[in-house]
Design a protein around this nucleic acid. Sequence first.
DNA 1: TACGGGACATTTGTTTGATT
DNA 2: AATCAAACAAATGTCCCGTA
Length: 301
Amino acid sequence: MSHTDYYFRHQCILRKLQKAPASLEEIQDYYELECETHGYAFSFSKRTFIRDKNEILSMFKREIGYNKSLNKYYLEEEEIQDDFGGRIADTYNTYLALNMMESIADFVHLEKRRPQGMEHFSELMQALKGKFIIKFEYEKYDNSDATARRAEPLALKEFESRWYLLAKDLKDNTIKIFALDRMSYPETTKQRFKADKNFNVNTYFEHCFGIVRPSETNAKPEEIILSFKGNKGKYIKSLPLHISQQIIKEDEKELQVKLLLFITHDFVMEILKHGDEVEVLQPQQLRKSLKTILKGAEQYY
DNA sequence: TACGGGACATTTGTTTGATT
DNA sequence: AATCAAACAAATGTCCCGTA
């Protein structure tokens, strides 16, 4: 039984209880049915369930309670947590969402995107869970040779169909982002590390678009004002570019939004994606660099 | 009475190391 | 280098008892 199977069981238990409270028998039936549809014939005992229940509490901070009069287990209300457990829960939820997408892929036509580097997921998840130092080889974009790394895993994050590991590189004690598809031979060592209490993933990514943070440590997020023309506004309203997105003006012609972000390459690319349907009003520096890029592009046509 | 969990058994998978 | 089994490790199951 691989790690994946083990996560799959947790996933089934959570999915079942998310829908409605259920008795142990109902949960077991649901799991067996799910396994069957994937071509397996797994089952689990009551003892395993009790262990899973505790595991789900410690790992994902989701408590499963028991209602004696109904003879049913139920999921306690989710608490917003910002600690280690919450971080894993976050990762896990994304993982679940991804898996679910896969299982409904036969019925619903989805954009064909296959997440890269998923084969390392379980290994890294295991290290993350147990706070083990990991070793792996990593290739940079510039195609230089792969270098061996040792790092403390902090979180796994998905962005635009790619998985990334946030980890503290022990070579220079710096927190970095590693793309899973450029990583090879990840290995969990026997060595444990202590999680830094002051570190919070959400704060770390607070002003980031996607997963890239500027390398300069003193970089400051900038206030950005964008104007989306015409119908585009509706789309941006329903799918905000970033959590900091605030609507400052809205009429038939345009939608103006304010963002607080680090201006990174990824963000510039995001703006370009919207072509002539967006105008950067602020800051001036960003207006200028977009103008340069677009002028450069113009000469091709 | 039935859940939760400790202790131990069983199963399954992985590592090691000796042997061919 | 390839093979196999013993040793080990991890996951899961069985049994049983305290407790609410």
